[in-house]
């Protein structure tokens, strides 16, 4: 499995990481190396095996429906790189 520059560009776009054009090929080669190593998993017969999604072997616990959080806009906004009053601010989004 080898990642061509177009594929790297597509993944980088999905992941919202800027990758310059001249980095697409070397990065692709590097990622391909990792994927090639991962290919050995194809040796394993996984027929009929149920995928294991996590290490915790129990059912989900539920929380009671009470309001016990929030009400602290300042704390929520205190680390924001740009804020306008009680809002986070970002460059204008066109819908």
């Amino acid at each position: 499995m080898s990642l061509d520059p177009a594929t790297v560009r597509r993944i980088a776009r999905l992941a919202r990481i800027r990758v310059s054009e001249d980095q697409l090929a070397p990065l692709g080669a590097e990622l391909s190396g990792i994927l090639a190593w991962i290919e050995q998993l194809n040796e394993v017969n996984v027929d009929g095996v149920e995928p294991l999604t996590g290490a915790a072997q129990m059912a989900l616990r539920l929380r009671e429906d009470v309001v016990n959080d929030g009400g602290n806009a300042d704390a929520v906004l205190s680390n924001a790189p740009d804020r306008a009053g009680a809002f986070y601010a970002v460059p204008k989004v066109v819908e």
């Binding site: 601010a89 460059p91 989004v93």
Partner: peptide, 10 residues
């Protein structure tokens, strides 16, 4: 709310 920004309320 602003000419060049969008404001976000969560």
């Amino acid at each position: 709310q602003h000419p060049t920004k969008s404001y976000i309320d969560l």
